[in-house]
Amino acid sequence: MPYLRFATGDRLRLDGEEMPGVVVSVEVEGENSVESLPREGRAGDVHVLRGYRDFRVRLTLRLAGPDPLAEARKLQAKFAMSKTEPLRVVHPHLAARGVEKALFARLVTREEGGEEGLDAVLELIQTEPREALKEANAAEEARLQGAMGQGPVAGPPKEGAQAKRNPPQEPKPPRYVEAFVQGQQSALGLVGGGR
């Protein structure tokens, strides 16, 4: 798997090859996927968490060599070849946010009036190869299957266990009802009624 190593204030290195431009800033963006649903007859919306989106990484590069347009072409050619292949990214900021692998998502170049050179924004999106996800899911499934045969498992009680712990009892009516059924008219006095 190709790797992308860089440091802020230094050049990008793609598989050890130095790329054009100097990394000016690194931005890592991650957010939850939230759906807003209107409430009927009430003000405001209900916000429902639907999951999370993969991290987006934006690297701002300054292309200020003798020929910035040639540097932009070289950058475009290199990353155009790696559009479908994940890159292993190596940078302390990205490691702190948990981004290890990413795909090339987009390249934006910007030319400012009155300034020499170009700015380039290289955008990467976090990814995990499908094979790794399949392996992780299979390992998790095997771990869960192995745990099912060992020791107690949380869940509903087995048939009859509840009955053994709490034997059924006849419900008893209140005292005033028992007295009334036995023919005592003064049973109302037990509940504060009658004289």
Rank of each mutant, 00 (worst) to 15 (best):
G151C: 07
L61T: 01
L103S: 02
D15T: 07
P173G: 08
E35S: 11
E116Y: 15
P157S: 04
P174Y: 05
E17S: 13
A154L: 15
L75I: 08
E27D: 14
R56H: 07
R130C: 00
E29V: 09
Y3C: 08
L103W: 01
L59C: 05
G193F: 15
R175S: 07
A72T: 00
L12G: 01
L4F: 06
V99K: 00
G98R: 06
R165H: 08
F79T: 02
F104W: 07
R165C: 03
D54M: 06
A102T: 03
G113E: 14
A96Y: 01
F180C: 03
K164A: 15
E100M: 08
K172M: 10
K172Q: 14
L63D: 01
A161V: 10
A7Q: 12
A70R: 14
A96G: 10
G113L: 15
Q150A: 13
P156L: 12
K78Q: 14
A132G: 02
R130G: 06
G51T: 01
V57K: 00
L75G: 01
M19I: 04
G65F: 02
R130W: 02
G160Q: 03
D119P: 00
P66K: 09
A179F: 02
L14W: 08
V121P: 05
V22C: 04
N137I: 07
L12Q: 03
P129D: 12
G30P: 00
R50Q: 15
L4W: 04
L75M: 06
V90S: 06
M1C: 09
G183Y: 05
L59E: 04
K78L: 11
N137Y: 08
L188E: 01
V153F: 09
E128G: 07
